Amino acid sequence: MADKDKAREFEYTEDDFNFLRRLSNQHSGILVPDDKFDMFYSRLSKRVRLLGFTCFKQYCRYLQEHPDREFTEFINAVTTNLTSFFREKHHFEFVAQTLLPELLKKNQSQKQIRVWSAGCSTGEEPYSLAMTLMENVPRDWDIKILATDLDTNVLSSAAEGVYPVDRIASINEERLRNWFQKGAGTQLHKVKIRPELRQIIYFKQLNLMQDWPLKGTFDFIFCRNVLIYFDRATKERLANRYAGLLAEGGCLFIGHSESLHQLDTPFSLIGNTIYKKTRL
């Protein structure tokens, strides 16, 4: 890694990168490897330009002196938000075919289902969950989905529920008719999630490394492609915190490249990156 790159618009050194990734880690717990050097430059150069600075050292100093003005913008810029509707399709199939039939029996007396999408990004995951639940749960049941993320920008986008048409290319016609509204005029190439889906989802900003002001228990939790960014001790601590909020026998869904193997947690693997809380 070179300290300086003459081709860059702004001076950007290894010291700058180390300061910025250390700051990110202290706040979010996310480990930033050496190969993210260029990514940090690419994502933060817009902020450097907007603030009128000529080098990243000035930006680092600004973050130190005015965290109240810039810190949220900084975290939003360096957070990764790759997602899509029904990503890792087998999870949604398991929910529909296996988990929901069990919950309909188990929760028959109170007729309610509670779900948490932790790391919801721009909303495709919680909306995919909402579709799955609305299609398979009787209409007189009370369904609520909590959707949280660290990035306030993606949360705002998610709550709006508007997407370019190319984002729904993989969704079948029946679902498109039932759950999406086509845009017109200036919104011609966009679609909007129907109100009946949006009204069961609650979007909230949450830092997984800090206190969780959450009440009650969840029947299952999706925390996919989030644990991969943390060290072993943090993964174990997070998994145990999730377990504490899950109902007895509740399920935790994680990403395709993640595992709880060799971590001390109350979970047992029951499917492809699907875990069940099997002890208190």
Rank of each mutant, 00 (worst) to 15 (best):
F74W: 12
G52L: 05
K57I: 00
Y127V: 00
D140H: 03
T79M: 06
E124N: 01
Y41G: 04
D35S: 10
R139H: 12
V137Q: 12
N81F: 06
G29E: 12
V48K: 10
P126F: 02
L104Y: 00
E102M: 09
C55P: 01
R47E: 10
S42N: 09
T80V: 15
C120I: 03
E70W: 11
R61C: 05
M131P: 10
Y41A: 05
W141D: 02
A96E: 15
T80M: 05
P126C: 04
P101A: 11
A77T: 09
A77E: 13
F56E: 02
E73D: 13
Q108T: 12
S128C: 05
M134I: 08
A118Q: 08
L31G: 11
C120W: 02
S28E: 08
F86G: 08
H90V: 03
L104H: 01
F71A: 04
G29R: 03
M131E: 08
S128K: 03
K57S: 15
K105S: 14
F92T: 09
V95N: 07
I75Y: 04
F19C: 09
K144F: 00
E88L: 04
E135P: 06
Q64F: 06
D140S: 00
K144I: 01
T122K: 03
C60S: 15
P138F: 00
F37Y: 15
F19E: 14
H27D: 11
L99G: 04
F53V: 01
W141G: 00
T83A: 11
K36H: 05
H91V: 08
H66L: 08
T132P: 06
S128G: 08
Q58H: 11
W141R: 00
E65W: 10
